[in-house]
Amino acid sequence: MNLTLKIWRQKNAQSKGKMVDYKVTEISEHMSFLEMMDVLNEQLVNSGEEPIAFDHDCREGICGMCSMYINGEAHGPDRGITTCQLHMRMFKDGDTITIEPFRAKAFPVIKDLVVDRTSFERIQQAGGYISVNTSGNTQDANAIPISKHAADEAMDAATCIGCGACVATCKNSSAMLFVGAKISQYALLPQGQVEAVDRVNNMVAQMDLEGFGNCTNIGACEVECPKGISLENIARMNREFLKANVKG
């Protein structure tokens, strides 16, 4: 198929950037979206132009790097997938596709479609961990009884790959689905209880400091999340935060 692409080009973090039109031809419907981008970049390199910078790594929906806002949706029109898992058969011959970087004040553009998501890492560092003794006396995790239900829910929360699609999609650029998932994966398990108060307080404080917006329960994040992280995680974070503040 033949396509027109409208792509955000921006030299570096300081420059202004603009949408630029490109044409690609003979794209197979079996290609992934990133492979289509590769074709375009090859074309650009061959004609002596600067290729389009975009993030990617695993190309199998695990790493969460492939941030692209395609035709007005994070990771494009399909559901439960990342951009690398998006197939060109979702588009028709002759389509015009708009491709933008994930947009949020806390995700500044580095170049073209590449954004800086280290704000997520700083939130994780503020409390998204448990402190365990690794001196050789580590307790076997299987020795701690955990209900199947809690283990399943914690695992569901832990499948968040930190891609940032929730922030990119959210009208408020809120990071609460991500932070809710990261808090929930510990809140549901006994190992997470010891540091629960500090965890939620510090992670929420860091989230606010980074300049993410405030959730208004629109639910777009849950729809666009490649891992199907549920809004229940945000409700759980709200409860954890409330509990932590009542306890003091």
Partner: peptide, 14 residues
């Protein structure tokens, strides 16, 4: 919290 707006945003999709 979003300084540069999207050129195309399909809010009704989600």
């Amino acid at each position: 919290s979003r300084v540069v707006k999207y050129a195309k945003n399909n809010g009704s999709a989600n």
